[in-house]
């Protein structure tokens, strides 16, 4: 660390003394860091400890009176059929949901950023609405959409002579249905971040590209996307976090069914906390945490640009 820092200071610090850099850096970082350590560090360490004990809801009033069980909670996971099933479901959800939502979110942001001159705010609000609409209303409308006999989707399918399935009650179709619903629901959130990110791209880059005769596609490929890397990284990471913790959609639409085909890891954790198995649920949470870290490292590798410093 020290070697790297002094190296950096000779390279670019230009006479800014070390002490001053410490003071300035921490001066900006300290207020956040103090609050953060007070309210985050303790609970994280406590919950990590819980994951190595047999703590249950019965121990709530006397949390120190529990037994240490080592990694037993963690090894138990691999024999938990429901956990394995939910892990597979979650993996499918992440692999399909993250790219789908990011492509849609970016497309919406690009569309609203570039082409529109009139009703810009109206469109922006419209695409943002699913993010803010109450999940109760969303659930009712989506259930109506996916209704087997009278639903909108199957009525459309009937027009082209296809007999539509019972989407939410079919073990193969329930998860894909929820993935599409989640993408629909979350793309507005990403659109907001992309919209902000797009503003930071210098206009000159586009002008230069146009002078070189670049098509819109080439501009997107060689100007927008590279310049958007930090934003893409942020959105990629938080989308992965969000989808690995996929939870609300199955809760309101299918309760994890039919036959656990939409049970996610987060839902399973939620159930285990509800059952009072705090130690086991904590262990599961930290396995989920590890998978989030691994996926995020992938994102950082994939979109490394300014991250080398």
């Amino acid at each position: 660390m020290t070697a790297a820092a002094s190296d950096a200071s000779t390279r670019r610090g230009r006479g800014v003394p070390r002490l001053r850099r410490v003071l300035v850096g921490w001066g900006f970082a300290l207020p956040f860091t103090v609050l953060f350590l007070v309210f985050m560090a303790g609970p994280v360490i406590a919950s990590l400890l819980m994951s190595f004990t047999d703590i249950r809801s019965a121990d709530l009033r006397n949390p120190l009176g529990v037994n240490l069980v080592g990694i037993q909670n963690y090894s138990r996971l691999f024999h938990d059929e429901l956990f394995i099933k939910s892990a597979v479901n979650t993996a499918i959800f992440v692999l399909a949901g993250v790219p789908l939502t990011m492509v849609c979110g970016l497309a919406a942001a690009l569309g609203l950023n570039a082409g529109l001159t009139r009703f810009r705010s109206l469109f922006r609000v419209g695409y943002y609405l699913p993010v803010v609409t109450s999940i109760v209303a969303i659930a009712v409308v989506w259930r109506f959409l996916l209704q087997p006999d009278s639903g909108l989707l199957n009525s459309l399918l009937r027009l082209v002579g296809v007999h539509g399935p019972n989407w939410l009650y079919d073990t193969r179709l329930a998860l894909p249905s929820l993935i599409v619903m989640a993408a629909w629901r979350n793309l507005g959130y990403q659109m907001v971040i992309f919209l902000a990110g797009l503003q930071a791209i210098p206009q000159e880059l586009y002008e230069a590209a146009r002078i070189d005769g670049a098509t819109s596609w080439q501009q997107l490929r060689y100007v927008t996307l590279p310049a958007l890397r930090p934003t893409l990284l942020f959105v990629g990471v938080i989308a992965t976090i969000g989808y690995l913790q996929f939870f609300e959609e199955p809760l309101v639409m299918t309760q994890g069914g039919p036959l656990n085909s939409t049970l996610s890891v987060s839902y399973h954790i939620y159930n285990q906390f509800g059952f009072g198995n705090y130690g086991y649920a904590s262990a599961m949470s930290y396995v989920l945490f590890l998978s989030i870290v691994l996926m995020s490292i992938l994102w950082f590798r994939l979109l490394r640009s300014d991250e080398g410093r």
């Binding site: 820092a5 970082a29 930290y286 870290v293």
Partner: peptide, 26 residues
């Protein structure tokens, strides 16, 4: 650039990734 920057970023990023449910009771 200041000492502890990378560790701090690691902590921030790490805690974004901790599922909220697990720290709730503590």
């Amino acid at each position: 650039r200041f000492p502890g920057r990378r560790a701090l970023f690691g902590l921030v990023l790490g805690s974004v990734m901790v599922p909220g449910m697990v720290t709730f009771v503590p």
